[in-house]
């Protein structure tokens, strides 16, 4: 963003969103409004893609393996106001930005290696 006016309109990131990267296992807490009731739905899986950078239209895709080994992917807008928070459960070492190869894998070959942190 080049213009200060435009930059001032940049939406705020939901809680915990700043830390997520491709390869992370995350829990996305989504607010769902049904009539008058509001509840939180959790979607847990691996972030396999983040696109759009810091653009207001940016999004990320979370993949989880559902029952009977069926893959389920959901794409969320990065700046969505319906996301209550995002928890990062695990960070892994990955060598590409889009982990679409996970779609073709299951079981052992779909594992990702955890990142080791050096505490400063």
């Amino acid at each position: 963003m080049t213009n200060a006016l435009m930059a001032s309109l940049q939406p705020e990131l939901p809680e915990g969103m700043a830390e997520i990267d491709p390869g992370d296992t995350v829990r996305v807490h989504q607010r769902i409004t049904e009539g008058r009731n509001e509840r939180i739905q959790v979607f847990q899986g691996v972030v396999i893609s983040m696109r759009g950078g810091k653009d207001p239209g940016a999004s990320y895709t979370v993949r989880r393996t559902g029952s009977h080994g069926v893959g389920v992917e959901r794409t969320f807008p990065l700046y969505s106001k319906n996301i209550d928070k995002v928890e990062v459960l695990r960070k892994t070492k990955v060598r590409r930005a889009q982990l679409y190869y996970l779609r073709d894998r299951q079981g052992k070959s779909a594992r990702l290696k955890e990142k080791r942190f050096i505490s400063v």
């Binding site: 213009n3 006016l5 207001p56």
Partner: peptide
């Protein structure tokens, strides 16, 4: 100034020109 997107309180997004 240019175009961007704004989210309203319900979470819907709108294309706007600033």
């Amino acid at each position: 100034v240019g175009m961007t997107q704004l989210f309203d309180d319900s979470g819907a997004v709108a294309p706007v020109t600033v």
